[in-house]
Computed example of a mutant assay.
Amino acid sequence: MSGTGLSIPAPTEASLFGLPLWLVVAVGAVALFGAFQVYYWVGHFLGERLYASRVGTRIGRHRIRKVENVVRRWGALAVYACFWVPVLRHSLPWVAGVLRVSYPWYVVASALGCLTWVPVTSFGLYTVIWGWVGLASRSPITAAVVAVAALAALAGVTVWRRRRKAAPDDKLASA
């Protein structure tokens, strides 16, 4: 990118809030690990009462049953896998606590999840952002088209999911 004065920093040289990016990622992984332990113990201590809470009611009993079935079937492996599924990432850990998944295995699975998911998503997002900034420095119009296309795709997926989610409810209402 000569001539623009813009250079993409190497991941080992990049910084955020004045800290090296790798350190921010490491702190993020530790913080997420801590949050996962809190989720587990909240589920463990509150048990079934958690399902009647505002959060449990909002999620819905039928959805919680689906998560319970995943945890019963896969145990700690489900805890690791939930890092890669956006909605499960923050609902499955407290269900694991309610179901009393083996805590040592839970700790291992959540640690492995933090050690893999946080760096992959952080550096992946870093790459996407700097890739788009590089594109914008070469061709602002192309970058704008890419941004609009990405937003349109996101809006399309959101609308599609909402319609798909509403369809079973509509069938129940008309029956």
Rank of each mutant, 00 (worst) to 15 (best):
L92A: 07
A175E: 14
T4N: 01
V157G: 10
K66P: 08
T116P: 02
G113Y: 00
L21S: 03
V85A: 05
S122R: 10
L172V: 09
E48C: 07
P104C: 02
W105Y: 09
T12I: 11
G43H: 03
P86V: 08
V79R: 06
A155W: 10
T116H: 03
E13A: 15
L46V: 00
L6V: 14
V55D: 04
H90F: 09
F45M: 06
A96G: 00
A155V: 15
A78E: 01
V24Q: 05
S102L: 08
Y80C: 14
R162N: 15
F36E: 15
V159W: 04
Y51R: 14
G28Y: 03
G3M: 01
S110A: 11
V79A: 11
W117H: 08
H62V: 09
Y103A: 09
D170H: 09
K66W: 02
W132N: 10
D170Q: 13
L151V: 15
R73T: 04
F33T: 02
E48L: 08
V67T: 06
R164N: 09
H44P: 07
R164E: 11
E48I: 07
V157Q: 10
Y40V: 02
A149N: 10
L46F: 01
S139V: 06
G113V: 08
S2A: 13
P9T: 06
T121V: 15
G43Q: 01
H90Y: 12
L6H: 12
G124A: 05
T121Q: 12
V79K: 07
E68H: 06
R73F: 03
V27E: 01
R100C: 06
D169H: 11
V38E: 04
G75L: 01
V107C: 07
V27N: 03
T57F: 02
T127C: 09
D169I: 13
L151S: 15
A155G: 12
L115R: 05
V25P: 09
L151P: 15
G5D: 01
P140E: 06
V30L: 03
P140N: 03
I59P: 13
L172S: 02
Q37P: 05
L172P: 12
T116F: 01
W22S: 13
G113Q: 07
R161C: 13
G3S: 02
V157S: 12
L99G: 06
V101K: 06
V145F: 06
G134T: 07
A76F: 08
Y126A: 04
V67W: 02
D170R: 15
Y39Q: 12
V85I: 11
P140L: 06
S102Y: 00
S91P: 14
W130Y: 12
R161Q: 14
V148K: 06
L19S: 12
K171S: 10
